[in-house]
Design a protein around this nucleic acid. Sequence first.
DNA 1: AAGGGGAACGGACTACAGTCCGCTTAGATG
DNA 2: CATCTAAGCGGACTGTAGTCCGTTCCCCTT
Lengths: 211, 211
Amino acid sequence: MEELSPLLPALPALPQIDAVAPERADAARNRERILCAARRLFAERGAGCVSMDEVAETAGVGKGTLFRRFGSRAALARAVLDEQERAFQEQLIRGEPPLGPGAPARERLIAFGEAMLDTLEAHAELLVAAEARGERFVAGAGAVHRLHVTLLLGEAEPECDAQLLAEALLASLGAELFSYLRYDRGMSLARLKDGWRELVGGTLRGAPEPV
Amino acid sequence: MEELSPLLPALPALPQIDAVAPERADAARNRERILCAARRLFAERGAGCVSMDEVAETAGVGKGTLFRRFGSRAALARAVLDEQERAFQEQLIRGEPPLGPGAPARERLIAFGEAMLDTLEAHAELLVAAEARGERFVAGAGAVHRLHVTLLLGEAEPECDAQLLAEALLASLGAELFSYLRYDRGMSLARLKDGWRELVGGTLRGAPEPV
DNA sequence: AAGGGGAACGGACTACAGTCCGCTTAGATG
DNA sequence: CATCTAAGCGGACTGTAGTCCGTTCCCCTT
């Protein structure tokens, strides 16, 4: 694994897994309250129609606390999706093929995109909120997806610029674009999946001729 | 023209197609002042560091006037780029190949992307401002690009879902993504152009090569 | 149990996009 | 030139994300 690290853009500050961060009791309580309130409000009224002030008030904490915990609106949305996202990443790493390891890279890529599209279908609004203001590129979940796609592309076609193509492919799975195509343009989920397949199929169909 | 009118059942108050907008003198003057101020401020300090209040003050007009004219921050950025964009569209429609008509669709697509990347290199910050808040999808310039790419794709590969693939390809030319790749990740412009060529090449490899 | 240090709290504050509405005035009409 | 009216004006106002900083109180130490 180590030798792959040059592919990473830089993943600093991965949340420490072990015990470096003992959380104070009141902090933990408040975090839970906030997540709970956010989940409820987002579900009730849609993520786009809930302000941070409302979340703070509903949770019964101050605004400062809310932002100290989560840093930004986008980060809060991500935190609400966290459980979901963890499960998805688990699938990618240890799940059954074709999503998990065992299938050819090309099949895994297709499965990945289809799963992403299913997630988008289920949580479009929240995901739009989660990728606001360019945080899309920095955020933890995005980094994992990026790495996953990069590795699969490199595996399927060692000659290609996997890092760059991964970004291009992921851009086509962005939440804002999805919302636009799905709801403003009325494209069906099946059509979007077909499009993804076409895109991946094309990208992986043999190395481009050397210039 | 006039002699047709007896045939018409009476079309009162159809929105005038031509000469719709006789602009009042003060309005024209203010629009010019605003564009001038915006151009200057954006150039001096970067589009990201200029607030609408500042533009209004520098232009010597009220905030209401500014928003009445341009509607939003993104629209103002687009207006500042307008001249540039007109010239570019002219190239697409009537310019020399490979950007203009005359070259095979595939070459034109590649040239289109490279030209877009050059534009991004020159005006990244302004273009980021211009595509804020999903206005990317609605705005005039975006619509022309979309149509152009869709037509070329359809021409090069009639079997494909040109509308959808056009969106995917255009997403990879988004200003935010460009800024991230170019400046945060430090990829060279040449590399981005190569990536675009790879992407287009792959997408169009499905169909039999045009003879 | 008491005390001290520092993390956590909360809400007032800032900055900014975008809206509203009463006042002004360009320019058309007679 | 006088009058009229609707387009245009401007700045106060709203709603929201995110910051600051004086205060509180958790938890470790003794």
